[in-house]
Structure formats: structure tokens, C-alpha cells
Simulated scan of single mutants.
Amino acid sequence: MKRKVRLNELLQPLEAAAPPTTAEAAPSPPLPTVAPERRAASGAVRAMGLDLERLATEARRAQELERQTQSGELVVELEPAQIDPSFAHDRMARTDDADYRRLVDSIQAHGQQVPILVRPHPADAARYQVAYGHRRLAAVAEIGRRIRAVVRPLSDVDLVIAQGKENAERRNLTFIERAFFAADLEARGFDRTTLNTALAAHPTEMVRYLAVARSIPRWLAEAIGPAPKAGRPRWKELAALLEVSGVPDSLRVLVERPDFRAAPSDRRFERALAAIRAPRLRPDAQTYLDREGRVVARLEPLATSTRLTVLETAKPGLSAFLADRLPQLIVEFEEGASDAV
């Protein structure tokens, strides 16, 4: 108990001393100074101090990492398998063109120079979702490396705006890709302001995008591909023809042909447009295609005759070739008829 009282006395501030009396005015001889006793900290106390210091350092580091993550300053390395694509589909050909192969070769030789942007996945705390950088993600995954990424909390609106802005600044989408990107965003409930901002589009242009996307079936657009040289006027023509007549059976057959699938995207567009431009025939009409799948001739039975139509634009010189052969064909037909009798 005496030790506790003594400790309290030492911790209390000194009270003001009373004025000295006459007898006390003379200075008293100084007391001998005694060096304070040094007490060695025990091992347990020393270890506790080190642990506290380490925890404080780690807490500061964690706070800094969180700050950098929140501000988008931190570049981290993630496993590609942890990352899901954006919910908004933009490109029709992400990994099957020459540009993508060059990207793979560049990353293989020089590493990934530009990080992608991801956000924490809104439905799975252990995963992420791409805002932009889908092609870089696919390339790094193909090579078998970890992906360098900026992690930033993003709302759905922030994500699609960042995605559209990156597309515009790096490798802009083609007309049909923009049209279906806009249609996907509209289908998810985004307002026109967000759509216009994401695609940097004037409201009038946005109306055109959405009209074309509504008129062209997605399966057909994806079969054709991005068609970078087609441009807005011809995609609008394709959409208008489909609105009037629907998708002809000949076009459904055409897009399944191996030679159609192997052709470049712009060539696929030309062939699809030519097939839709063709006039409608009777159900018993016959259509003749060349080796590239283009319609070159039609044979259509009428009431008292049969009409042969040759498409010179598709196969110049074919009509002259058939005209030269026609007399011989007639002779062969007559001889065959005589033999049959």
C-alpha cells in the first residue's frame, strides 16, 4: 500500500511552495545526486513492443494500399482466371484478327506495357470485372502470365463510360459494334445520357445505332463480323432490306458455308448484302451460286415459259458465255430427245 501512495505522489503535480521564512532564507547544502536505477526490460516486454511496432507499420501500409486502390493509383498483378469480362459486350472480334495476333507477339516479346482497368466484382468478392483491356487480358492469358491491372471501385455507369472512352481512344469500334454496344446498354436499362457519353455520340447518331441494331439479327451481325470498311450507309441499307423482306433462306444457308466463314469480315458483308439485295423468287425458282457463294443466275418458271436471269454484276461475261453455248445445248437436247423416242 505504501508503494501505491508513493507512486501517486510522484505522478501528482507539485504544489506551490509557501514563501520561505527568514530562517529558511539561507540556502541549504545541495543533496547528493543519485543516478536513476536502470531497469532492463524483460524479454516478453521487448517482444511485445516489437510486435506493436510491426502491427502499426502493417496498418499504415494497408491504409496506403487502400488509398491507392481507391484512387486508382495502384497497379497489381492478378491471375487472368480471377477476372470476368464486362457485362457490356462491345467488340465482335476480340481474338481472331491480325491485330490481336500482333498484340500477343508484342506482349510475349516486351511484356504488358499498359495495365487494364478492373473493378471488384459486384457479385463475388474474390473476383474482378474488366472495364477495359479485354484483348490484353486474353493475350496475357494465352501466354500464361499474370495480368497487370489497375483496380478501381466503379459503378455500372462508370464502367461503361470508361469502357467506351478507352475504345474511342485506342481502337475505335466499327459502326455495327457501336450499334450493338449501344443496344446492349439500352437493354440493361441505361439512359440515353449514359449511352451518348459512353459512345461519345450525338443523340441523332444514337438513334441510328439503335435502329440498325433492332433491324439486324444479332446472329447475322456476328456471322458477318465488324466489317470495318462497310460504314454506316451500307449497314443502314442492310437493315432497311431486312425490315422490308426479312431474312431470306438463301442468306441463312450462305452464312453457314465454310468459305463464307473463312472470308474476311468485309467480304462477308458484301456477300450477305448481295444475297439480300437479290429479288424475291417463286418457291420453285432455282438459284445458282459460284464457288465463292455469290448468286450468279436464277431460273424461274413462269406460266408458259421459264425465265433465266444472269447477274452480270456478280459474274461479268457469264451471259455471253451462255449465249455462245446455247445453240450447242439445243442440239444436244434435241439429240437426246430423239434417242429417247
Score class of each variant (00 low, 15 high):
residue 223 A to G: 04
residue 250 S to Q: 11
residue 78 L to D: 01
residue 244 V to L: 07
residue 265 S to E: 15
residue 302 L to W: 12
residue 281 L to M: 10
residue 7 L to G: 01
residue 75 V to P: 03
residue 185 L to F: 04
residue 114 V to F: 05
residue 125 A to E: 09
residue 128 Y to D: 02
residue 298 R to N: 01
residue 60 R to H: 01
residue 217 P to I: 10
residue 114 V to L: 09
residue 40 A to L: 01
residue 262 A to L: 11
residue 231 G to L: 13
residue 106 S to Q: 12
residue 225 G to D: 06
residue 317 G to C: 00
residue 109 A to F: 03
residue 334 E to V: 09
residue 139 A to F: 10
residue 60 R to G: 01
residue 48 M to V: 07
residue 123 A to I: 01
residue 53 E to A: 14
residue 232 R to T: 04
residue 300 E to G: 00
residue 227 A to T: 09
residue 29 P to S: 04
residue 247 V to D: 03
residue 341 V to A: 13
residue 151 V to E: 06
residue 338 S to I: 07
residue 95 T to E: 09
residue 310 V to I: 09
residue 121 H to Q: 05
residue 244 V to F: 02
residue 294 R to T: 05
residue 32 P to Q: 09
residue 274 A to C: 08
residue 64 E to Y: 01
residue 93 A to K: 05
residue 277 R to I: 08
residue 266 D to I: 10
residue 198 A to R: 07
residue 228 P to W: 12
residue 327 P to V: 09
residue 236 K to V: 13
residue 263 A to C: 12
residue 213 A to V: 07
residue 67 R to N: 00
residue 86 S to I: 02
residue 338 S to L: 15
residue 154 L to A: 05
residue 175 F to E: 02
residue 319 S to I: 02
residue 93 A to T: 12
residue 8 N to S: 05
residue 213 A to L: 07
residue 47 A to G: 00
residue 256 E to W: 04
residue 84 D to H: 14
